[in-house]
Design a protein around this nucleic acid. Structure first.
Lengths: 241, 241
DNA sequence: TTGTGTGAACAACTTCACAGCT
DNA sequence: AGCTGTGAAGTTGTTCACACAA
């Protein structure tokens, strides 16, 4: 029986995809979030002509510490050579594979205002295998406008576009009040990953991944630390007086 | 001696601002990051006419669970009433104070390309006490252009602008290759908080806070999960075959 | 000798579960 | 009876420090 062993491996892998399994392939979220940073750092090192890189050097380029680099990379497998380091190109390949960047993902951007324009023109999209399948807006006056080589379509066609182009990632760049409705429509059409730029909490059913980017929240976090710094120097002068 | 007790309190507070102190005022980072979300949820509830809110209701509006809400709010003090909940307006006030939103912060945006335009026109700025003190670009052709009521200045004037307007927060919306230099100039001029949109790792000296927003990284994280979902359904069919 | 890979200690964060106040 | 505030337990993430391979 040739297929028995492979079959057993499949079943084990399947089981390990469930909840709360530590074994082979459970890459921690924190690690996943750093892999793209390593990838970018490695691209820079490869441009600089490096063949291999140590965890120390990669850590420096990625802005983390070397223990973290080694732990993170160890989750992908033992791709390093003791006493030498990691092969840059091989590592790029492995990380890309793990992140699913060896295939193309179709993306739709909804909401072609200021932010939508900025996102559509952002070069980093195509570069990593994210293909803009469509730009969508609720305002008929914008329909037909060309942007980054793609024509703007109307919201009414969203469902058809998602199904035809097999869009799996939706980017929401609408005003806050429209975001939940847009999200629901994206999900109904079959999108399973959403990146939300609207400053509002939105809900998705289980099985759909949602990430958010929120300028206002970032500024408020910085404000907190600014205030703490200000309070600290005020106290320091008071105590030293 | 009237001032002795107040003085002792100051010194205690000063000491507690050091590293690794659990005592009174050490609000966890994870909590700080959620406070702006609560604030937004509370604004919605206040608009809806609510006078008080339970941890359950607030959790629902903020997209977290109620235990987290209670723990988070307990770090600010005991502002709730058992059997009743929290007073909406009072809580808004306390969170705003904690985040330093009761004062205005001057912000400078560097890099007036697509993204810079989107950021400058983003309404959420002024709304929370973030005043755009200046828009700055390295391209002289853009200087003088008016945007959201502010004229674009040249990079050469950055230092003077930061000092005169007491800018404490800098937003970097330049191409990647310019980001580190812009950051250094901002820090040299006296900016102590930086929000970086450029897709590159930048370094700041100790004492300066740095946060980043990176579209490409977010997409790659979604890609990872998409791939995992795809692998899972592939395995499921294989096993069930 | 150099630098990876990893168990073990540590630290941060989340969730549970319930005492105690209103 | 209802809901907060919080110790304690559980989970995830980080750092240390060193055995071991090249």
């Amino acid at each position: 029986m040739a297929g028995t062993k492979a079959r057993a491996r499949e079943i084990r892998a399947y089981a390990s995809l469930g909840r709360g399994v530590k074994s082979s392939r459970g890459i921690p979220e924190a690690t996943v979030a750093r892999l793209p940073v390593y990838l970018r750092a490695l691209a820079g090192l490869a441009d600089g002509g490096s063949e291999t890189v140590s965890s120390d050097a990669l850590a420096l380029a990625a802005g983390v510490n070397s223990a973290k680099v080694r732990k993170d990379l160890s989750h992908l497998g033992s791709y390093g050579t003791r006493g030498v380091g990691y092969d840059v190109n091989y590592l790029v390949h492995q990380i890309s594979r793990e992140l699913g960047l060896t295939q193309d993902w179709a993306v739709v951007i909804v909401g072609i205002g200021n932010l939508g324009h900025a996102l559509a023109n952002y070069g980093g999209f195509a570069e990593r295998g994210f293909r803009i399948a469509a730009l969508v807006d609720a305002d008929r006056r914008r329909v037909g406008e060309e942007l980054a080589g793609v024509n703007v379509s109307h919201m009414d066609d969203l469902d058809a576009i998602v199904r035809e182009s097999k869009v799996s990632i939706g980017v929401i760049a609408t005003p806050a009040h429209a975001a939940q409705d847009v999200c629901d429509r994206l999900v109904a059409a079959g999108v399973t990953s959403i990146l939300n730029f609207a400053p509002v909490v939105i809900n998705v059913p289980a099985g759909v991944d949602l990430r958010k980017v929120d300028l206002s929240i970032e500024l408020q976090i910085l404000s907190f630390h600014e205030q703490r710094k200000a309070a600290m120097s005020r106290l320091r002068t008071a105590v030293e007086s």
